[in-house]
Design a protein around this nucleic acid. Structure first.
Lengths: 360, 360
DNA sequence: TAGTTTTGGTTAAACGTTTAACCAAATGGT
DNA sequence: ACCATTTGGTTAAACGTTTAACCAAAACTA
């Protein structure tokens, strides 16, 4: 009896508020507090399942919140708590399967913990990357997960992030000097696996169209190539080692260059699938048979490598795992009160996917 | 003389503050105010170039801000102003050149006006899309620019956005019923241009591997195909019109299906480049000559269409322009005090890029 | 020179949450 | 029956900005 009187009373207050809402913009915890005649603090605690609030009150609060279509104001809580629950992600570009898959996995892991991500593309431009960092800091992100642009050599901007005590996690394109966490694959070893494979297929003169030496991962691939070639007593001709921007176009151009040589290679290892695709175009254009005349291996295992003719052998970079590990590494810092980063590498073993372009 | 005494005094206060900063975390306008012995409000106004602050004070404020490495707290100002200066972007996926290019152009236009974007991928999942909308609303975005997932038919979540008075702009995959702004290309006409082209190349039996009929853009392409085929008095065989998920795999499968027909088509128009690529695989697998035996046309002008052999004719969707227009449309609403959206379409004429796969 | 305007600020409240500190009432222990 | 504890809250301050309202002093006006 008393219960139902109370209920009717509450319903009245509620409908009064719902009417007001057509005029007012948004429901706040104050509105809920007014309806229930309790303090805003109690509402806040109820919504956050604080132990000092009774089950009954919690239930009532959640009910009213539902009815009033309450949406917490993230900015207010972020301001108060000093945490934005936002993580910035910087990639050279999103339109490669590798990066898009990494991002997807970062997002998946972080969403579960209530974090959202802000994605920015540097388009391989150092300036754009600096701008991205500025805007991410401005947006008060709680952390930054990044893969550096090709152009980036000056690390001041990243140092700024570190100086602010914001966790910085690098993946794929990293830099030892920053002394932060890094997740990537074993580029050096990947090169060795590739060369090994090509040698097993009977290749004797293997060229490498590599990335910019100044970028660590490409440098590692180059070192891996050199050491492996030496190990197998193959010719280490400087003409066979070419630096490239690794775009489709440049891949094509650099392959043309290799074809000009008086002594052509019988296998080419290209440090990116996109450039490998361009190289394949060049070979086809000149009616050179792949793999019979020249074998080809790419890097990245982009989906198109499987569907192109001939399909291109490539290195699977475990993008999903990289994304997960990057996110988990970040989450590790959120548990601690102070952020103190050191060089901490997670290196995954990549695997070679052998396809038509390099199988006899 | 007096000047230099003042300067020394200031320097002292400054260095005192800089020392404190090693302990304290972040510089706020209060810190700047204390150094200069003015009010925080004055600092705020100075930083925002308010006319009521003297040039001298503004200069001093900016100087001190610089020295103390002041970074405005975006959350605080967003909370106070009720604007987060964040725009949410929802796409089915980022790893297609079309979407990544749209995003890049949205970002470019919005950054200039001080907006940042939060990108989320729905992965063509309705549930993920709803979650994205929730988190974007939670993050207090000032607007949402979206291209809908294939699965999406229920529009309640988007209605929620509208109900909140947050500008909603759709592109590519839109929906008339929502009565909001839409930017896209003329899909109907694109189909007609393609058929016209194929007819000009002497094709008599043209098939269409289309997307899901329930998705408006794919439906339009289908209608365009049907009307054009009728117009040219070509056979409108139901067997020639196939619905597909338009992935690489499904494109391959659906092409196989077409090849089973007793009366094969002599041209196939595929509503996506990815599916077209799959279709090309199927054709090559069966040693069918493209374009001699069967001509092929895709949709989207993804970069790989130009480098694959044979290169695939396709429709350029003007991704850059779509991104720009979407961003500008959003910015239009930020000038107005009340948001009142109506169905407002910007339809761009797409252009057919003719390549080897359909040129005799 | 008294009144008005302009200049260059100041004060205080507000945005919506969270949280430390407090407290009254109920319950428990002996 | 008295003190201690637990329960279930309340109050008020804080997060860092912005902004409406106010004001003193200087500068103009006639």
């Amino acid at each position: 009896m008393i219960e139902s009187v109370k209920t009717i009373y509450l319903l009245k207050r509620l409908s009064k508020y719902i009417k007001k809402l057509n005029i007012k913009k948004k429901t706040t915890i104050k509105d809920i507090a007014n309806v229930l005649n309790i303090s805003a603090a109690a509402v806040s605690k109820a919504l956050n399942d604080d132990s000092r609030i009774s089950k009954k009150t919690k239930k009532a609060v959640k009910q009213v919140a539902e009815n009033l279509n309450y949406q917490p104001n993230h900015l207010a809580s972020a301001l108060r708590k000093g945490k934005s629950k936002l993580v910035g992600v910087i990639v050279p570009r999103t339109n490669s399967n590798f990066f898009s898959s990494v991002i997807q996995n970062i997002e998946e892991v972080l969403n579960k913990e209530g974090y959202n991500i802000i994605i920015t593309q540097s388009n391989e431009s150092f300036k754009k990357e600096c701008d991205s960092i500025d805007t991410l800091l401005f947006t008060q992100v709680d952390g930054i997960i990044a893969s550096m642009a090709n152009e980036t050599v000056d690390l001041d901007y990243y140092e700024k992030v570190k100086a602010k005590g914001i966790p910085l996690i690098l993946f794929d394109r990293g830099e030892n000097d920053l002394n932060v966490d890094y997740i990537g694959i074993n580029d050096y070893k990947s090169s060795q696996v590739i060369i090994e494979h090509l040698v097993n297929q009977g290749r004797k003169r293997i060229a490498h169209i590599g990335g910019y030496k100044r970028t660590r991962i490409f440098n590692n691939r180059i070192r891996g190539y050199i050491d492996a070639v030496k190990k197998h007593n193959l010719p280490l001709d400087p003409e066979l080692l070419i630096e490239s921007s690794l775009t489709i176009e440049d891949g094509k151009e650099k392959m043309e260059q290799l074809l000009q040589l008086k002594e052509r290679p019988d296998a080419v290892y290209v440090a990116s699938d996109y450039a490998a695709l361009g190289a394949l175009q060049a070979l086809k254009g000149r009616k050179i048979k792949v793999p019979e005349d020249i074998a080809l291996v790419g890097f990245g295992d982009e989906p198109f490598t499987a569907v192109v003719t001939p399909s291109i052998s490539s290195i699977n970079q475990h993008s999903a795992e990289i994304g997960k590990q990057a996110a988990l590494t970040f989450l590790g810092y959120t548990k601690k009160k102070t952020v103190k980063q050191t060089l901490n590498k997670i290196i995954l073993d990549a695997e070679l996917v052998i396809r038509e372009s390099s199988r006899n």
